[in-house]
Design a protein around this nucleic acid. Structure first.
Length: 872
RNA sequence: GCGGGCGUGGCGGAACUGGUAUACGCGCAGGACUUAAAAUCCUGUGUCCUAGUGACAUGUGGGUUCGAGUCCCACCGCCCGCACCA
């Protein structure tokens, strides 16, 4: 039996599409625009299954929208800066630029072999000076707008990568890529003022109704807005020393009368001041710093404090003073780095107070109940009371509820000069300096006289030197003998270039805009950006829910402020795809094995592939995300080599919904392969004598045949129902359901009997529908079949099929008949039958009368065209 | 600890706003073709039994309803995010 020659077909159609420029995008025309974008890859060397899934999903959307008459922009490029290139330079003595270039060449060919409908003329690589010169210009514009600034700050230092990490890049106290414990270091760093947009970034999440709720929620939590008050506590210095005013942030200003201490972070400026003449405090601060930020340390860390001896005055009660502690659980990075402690109503403060014998004065008591009037009987034991209640022991606040008390105290803050209402965010400014070579140079010059001077725009780009030494420890640009030497653009004296480079999230924060006009002399033209942006559908991994997606949202606002573009939100729709997983295998010694080193012998059992007898037993582990370390990877190239791109694409779409994890299985890809061949045979080796290409487009008159061949009409209806359902499924990204429905139609066509012209026409009509519907999913096979069916045009240029409305209407419906909620039979009735008639018919069913068994009928529930339930 | 999501056959998963649970695929079993195998095709396949127009089944236990996989409450398990955030 002949088989589909995918190798020949895939190569042929790929070159036809390319030669005819099928997927080149241009602005203008009457068609509505549609910009579909998949997250561009880091050129690590070879594509992996995660890429295959991501880009298959994107290609289905792109090809579908094109068929639906949209002017589609579907570009691809490379997120080409990053540390692996530097590591490769060290290991293999190859320049990062060369290594990256080679990887891009390999991966481009691999992506092309998948038959993805990209406009390759728009390809970009972020390590290209022609790309990064524009972001250097943006940086200078941000500087003018006050959106970027430099400050000395404590940073997360990754000792393995020898660089700074953003807070978002620290996971459980470890570097997101190296996994090394992150250290604290004080460095002078460039920051982007993302916090200037905290409120906007939070509020506008509500407008992103085509984003997954969970991503919006993650961003909401990350921004972490909390309302409360900033409050002041005045204090006198120790031993008559310098006094001052301590500012704290609290979300519970209502509990101010329950305050029994204040505490500040170890790296709070006041801690530093006080430690100057206090050796014990210096020792304590060191202890706090060395406790480490590993998750184990944080979880088990006991709350410890150091009593500075300073007493702060209660803002609403001159008679009261509170001790000031330096405490390990107070974070300098949040709020003002200082708190007041109210042990009765905060669990952390309670633990601290118990440890140091501080007062625990309840100021909120549970509301009065008939059993328990509000009284002095309310005592705090081991648990702080954090629920709503009634204020007590609180002077003018007594008797108020928590919310009322908050408002009341906030109103008095100003008059009492005790503080101000305020909002605080967890979000911190984005530190963008990295001490790495393979990134975009930050275009400023440090002059001993003029300070920080921007590189003049006509001198951009500041290009990376090709001869930096990447093997010496430290920052390669800083180590370079001459690169950093530059004359001050302001005064002309010798000065020094900034040697830090941008965090690589900088490049990915605006690449979607560059794709609009990738060859422009500016970052992008306003015209092209106005036409294409925002991205209508963005597709990528959930791992970027906070990092990349939040930075891009911020960047778009910053660019808008600088007049680059007119939109706030870059991505209107977002689809986050699940991971590609595979079973794991270990041999007797616990060593990981690749799937192709293993022979599956049964359910959850396997042995080492080793000659005809097979080797030793293998432990089959649960399916986990494909990773090199566990060796549970399958190489896309070998899959495409064996089964073809279309088979791989079909499998990626058919087994799981896109947002869920997908299990890669040998059986699954085989199943997809079988279907590919089955479809090919249906078209190329039909049961009838005549090949399908010989049937004209004229539809036989089947009205006359309806009685004679009800199967024909039934099948015709199924064809159009499938068109309608699949269209709906694709609109909602239910690709797995779409595949299932198309397979159902394939089964129906297979069952269609008859060899006359009418039957052959219906069969051909059905096959055409299948080919059209599968077009976005399996573009090569369907293009091939489209031609076998006698078409001269390209399927890629063919509009999406339309379901004929009158074929979607059912004349009869099957109604379920229940007795007391249990199914007792079904009834075929004309659609929209009269209720009375339906009831009579239902009660006449033999099985129904048996179930009723003469009992009196209490009620009959009739849902038209659906169900009849007889209650007895 | 807090927040969110998910629990449906041997497996991946269907089931629109409560209305015939298990579509489609995988796997498995039997059969056809073949000297044989592969490929292909056909048939069957939730569980149980007394085999029926039967009973029981959507993590567990309750509830609402004529009717619950779907809604409500409690619990169990798994996954993800955040984590001393004042």
């Amino acid at each position: 039996m002949s088989r589909y020659n995918f190798k020949q077909a895939e190569a042929k159609w790929q070159s036809v599409w390319e030669d005819r420029g099928c997927f080149a995008a241009g602005e203008g025309g009457d068609k509505p625009k549609y910009y579909v974008l998949e997250m561009f890859p880091y050129p690590s060397g070879r594509i992996h299954m995660g890429h295959v899934r991501n880009y298959t999903l994107g290609d289905v959307v792109a090809r579908y929208k094109r068929a639906r008459g949209f002017n589609v922009l579907h570009p691809m490029g490379w997120d080409a800066f990053g540390l692996p290139a530097e590591n490769a330079a060290k290991e293999n003595k190859v320049r990062p630029a060369r290594w990256t270039e080679q990887n891009i060449a390999t991966m481009r060919e691999q992506l092309k072999s998948m038959g993805l409908s990209y406009d390759w003329s728009r390809e970009i690589a972020t390590c290209d000076p022609d790309y990064y010169r524009h972001e250097q210009k943006m940086f200078l514009d941000f500087l003018k707008q006050g959106l970027v600034y430099r400050k000395e700050s404590w940073v997360n230092w990754d000792p393995v990568e020898n660089t700074v990490l953003a807070n978002e890049q620290v996971i459980d106290g470890k570097g997101w890529r190296s996994g090394a414990n992150v250290e604290n270091r004080l460095l002078s760093q460039w920051f982007m003022k993302i916090t200037a947009f905290s409120e906007e970034l939070l509020q506008d999440l509500e407008t992103l109704d085509r984003w997954p709720a969970r991503v919006r929620l993650m961003q909401e939590k990350w921004i972490g807005r909390s309302e409360g008050a900033y409050m002041f506590f005045d204090f006198d210095g120790r031993n008559g020393g310098k006094g001052g005013r301590l500012e704290v942030f609290t979300t519970r200003p209502d509990t101010i009368f329950g305050a029994s201490f204040c505490a500040i972070a170890a790296n709070h400026p006041l801690s530093q001041d006080l430690s100057e003449d206090d050796a014990d405090l210096r020792a304590f601060i060191t202890e706090c710093g060395s406790a480490g930020t590993s998750e184990a340390a944080i979880e088990t860390a006991e709350k410890i404090g150091y009593d500075t001896g300073v007493r702060v005055r209660h803002p609403f009660d001159d008679e009261r003073t509170l001790p000031l502690y330096v405490a390990n659980f107070v974070l300098m990075e949040y709020g003002t780095g200082a708190i007041f402690g109210c042990p009765a109503h905060d669990q952390r403060d309670l633990e601290f107070a118990r440890k140091y014998g501080l007062d625990v004065l309840p100021v909120v008591a549970p509301r009065e109940t008939p059993q328990e009037p509000i009284g002095e009987s309310f005592v705090i034991e081991d648990e702080a009371f954090t629920d709503d209640g009634v204020l007590i022991n609180s002077a003018f606040l007594d008797g108020l509820g928590v919310e009322e008390a908050k408002s009341a105290i906030i109103e008095r803050l100003d008059a009492a000069d005790a503080g101000r209402p305020g909002v605080n965010y967890r979000l911190r400014d984005w530190g963008i300096s990295r001490q790495r070579y393979w990134g975009c140079p930050i275009p400023v010059i440090h002059c001993p006289d003029c300070g920080i001077v921007p590189v003049p725009e006509e001198d951009l780009p500041v290009v990376l030197p090709e001869d930096a030494d990447l093997e010496a420890p430290g920052n390669p640009l800083d180590n370079h003998p001459t690169w950093k030497d530059a004359d001050c653009p302001a005064c002309g004296k010798p000065a020094r270039r900034e040697t830090d480079t941008f965090d690589t999230f900088f490049e990915s924060s605006w690449y979607f805009a560059r794709f609009c006009s990738p060859h422009a002399d500016t970052a992008f033209t306003r015209e092209a950006a106005d036409y294409w942006l925002p991205v209508d559908q963005y597709i990528g991994g959930i791992e970027h829910a906070v990092l990349h997606l939040l930075y891009s949202r911020f960047f778009t606002r910053a660019l808008k402020q600088c007049g680059y573009l007119g939109i706030k939100e870059p991505f209107e729709g977002l689809l986050t795809q699940g991971m590609v997983c595979h079973e794991t295998y270990r041999d007797e010694n616990g060593k990981w094995l690749y799937p192709d080193e293993v022979e599956i012998t049964g359910d959850k059992s396997a042995r080492v592939l080793d000659g005809p007898q097979g080797g030793s037993a293998v432990t089959v582990g649960r399916s986990e995300k494909m990773s090199k370390s566990r060796k549970n990877v399958v190489d896309p190239e070998s899959i495409i080599e064996t089964y073809g791109a279309d088979t791989a694409r079909l499998f990626m779409l058919s087994d799981s919904p896109p947002d869920r994890d997908l299990d890669w299985t040998e059986a699954g890809i085989e199943g997809a392969w079988r279907y590919v061949n089955r479809l090919w045979r249906l078209v190329n080796a039909p049961d009838s004598k005549k090949p399908f290409s010989k049937f004209g487009a004229t539809r036989p008159d089947m009205k006359a045949d309806e009685k004679e061949f009800p199967g024909l009409i039934f099948t015709l209806k199924e064809i159009h129902k499938t068109i309608s359902k699949v269209t709906e499924d694709l609109e909602r990204f239910h690709f797995n359901k779409a595949v299932a429905r198309i397979r159902e139609l394939t089964n129906t066509l297979d069952d269609l009997a008859g060899n006359d012209d009418s039957a052959a026409w219906v069969r051909r009509h059905g096959l055409e529908a299948i080919v059209l519907l599968l077009g976005p999913m399996m573009p090569h096979l369907t293009e091939e079949l489209w031609h076998s069916l006698g078409h001269e045009t390209l399927l890629a240029d063919t509009p999406w099929p339309e379901a004929e409305a009158d074929l979607l209407v059912e004349e009869t419906v099957t109604i379920a008949v229940q007795v007391n909620g249990k199914l007792r039979g079904t009834l075929d009735l004309p659609k929209d039958s009269d209720d009375q008639m339906a009831e009579t018919a239902a009660l006449a069913l033999e099985n129904v009368t048996a179930a009723i068994a003469g009992k009196p009928i209490r009620k009959v529930i009739i849902v038209p065209n659906r169900i009849i339930n007889v209650v007895v």
